[in-house]
């Protein structure tokens, strides 16, 4: 390896070149994804359309259909992976996903309620966002009231409880929903999809994801320390409770925003931080950007598959599960530790 043999004071930074390479790969993938589709475009046509020239029909395809969709895939993938990396560090478990505290179940219930009440799309998205935030809010509130020495386990179990309740309410609404009109919409939403996404859908989610990423980036060192557990983090000088609250709030904001946009897309937040950790190590300062970039690439590829491999749209959640679940088994087989 030869790492750190010459000047051991400066830690080697393999992460920087890798981050650059990922960014380049992301740009190329995005460009490729804009070309692919029922109305196939050449690189020249895409470049022309991007600069506002050439075939008007190609311009409409690029600006109104492909770019919003590619942008949404990048945003959702980056956001879920970043939130997943944060939750995994916080809960000291590499097999944790961003919906561990019930954000997906809550957002699902919010969206299903919105569809059930035949609300407009923007209101359904708002309802999903609120549902996700409220679910985690309830977990945090009850968690603060329950006196138990193991804070982490308390939160995880409360997440299971709130998730189960939200799931039950969602099921009830599905039974009561109109089977021809509402039920297909509900099912599709719960499996996640970026079909029919427009720029107007992305715009509210984007700033919220960015606002959520700021505290995660600022607290990057403390998040490492927090992954040692509460007692040790506090003995090292970190106000563990307060820091954890900020990280959970930020990661939940991110997850709820993109879940409102794309529906429930599972597995990304669980699997991608793993791949990132293998490449750049567990240090959060490198893990966060690497997770976001790989997550963006991954979901872009999956979403491009979702809209091209069949005549109908394949729900995103189906594809991410088909890819993610075997990977999860492989991780388990490699014997990484769970809760100690």
């Amino acid at each position: 390896m030869g790492r750190g043999t010459t000047a051991d004071v400066s830690l080697p930074r393999p992460g920087l070149t890798l981050t650059g390479a990922l960014a380049v790969a992301l740009a190329l993938l995005a460009f490729g994804a804009v070309m692919i589709g029922p109305y196939a475009l050449t690189p020249g046509q895409v470049l022309a359309a991007l600069t506002g020239q050439g075939d008007p029909q190609a311009q409409i395809v690029v600006w109104n259909i492909r770019l919003p969709r590619v942008g949404a895939a990048l945003l959702v993938g980056a956001a879920l992976a970043a939130a997943g990396a944060s939750y995994q560090a916080l809960f000291r478990n590499p097999l944790v996903s961003p919906d561990i505290l019930g954000v997906s179940a809550g957002a699902g219930l919010g969206a299903v309620a919105g569809i059930f009440l035949s609300l407009p799309v923007a209101a359904i998205q708002a309802s999903a966002f609120v549902g996700g935030m409220v679910a985690v809010g309830v977990v945090m509130l009850v968690g603060a009231l329950v006196r138990n020495t193991d804070r982490t386990l308390t939160l995880v179990l409360l997440g299971v409880v709130v998730g189960a309740l939200a799931g039950a309410a969602t099921s009830l609404l599905k039974v009561m929903a109109d089977p021809y009109d509402q039920l297909p919409a509900i099912t599709f939403w719960l499996l996640g999809s970026l079909a029919s996404i427009t720029m107007r859908d992305i715009l509210p989610a984007l700033p919220m994801v960015l606002v959520g990423l700021i505290p995660l980036a600022l607290l990057r060192w403390r998040i490492n320390v927090l992954s040692l557990g509460d007692d040790e983090a506090r003995a090292l000088g970190v106000e563990a409770g307060r820091t954890r609250f900020v990280v959970i709030a930020a990661a939940t904001l991110i997850t709820a925003s993109v879940t409102a946009l794309a529906g429930v897309v599972g597995w990304v937040g669980l699997v991608i931080p793993h791949i990132a950790r293998m490449l750049v190590g567990p240090g959060f300062a490198r893990l966060l950007p690497a997770s976001a970039l790989i997550g963006a690439c991954y979901l872009l590829i999956v979403d491009t598959l979702a809209r091209t491999i069949a005549a109908v749209e394949v729900p995103l959640g189906v594809l991410t599960a088909v890819i993610g679940a075997p990977f999860f088994v492989w991780l388990l087989a490699r014997g990484r530790r769970g809760w100690s």
Binding site: A89, R92, N93, P94, N224, S227, L228, D231, E232, A235, L236, R277, G281, P282, G283, R337, S340
Partner: peptide
């Protein structure tokens, strides 16, 4: 005060 806990296995492979 510095605290030295019992040697433990951390969840992530830090150097």
């Amino acid at each position: 005060v510095a605290y030295v806990p019992q040697a433990h296995a951390p969840p992530f492979p830090f150097e």
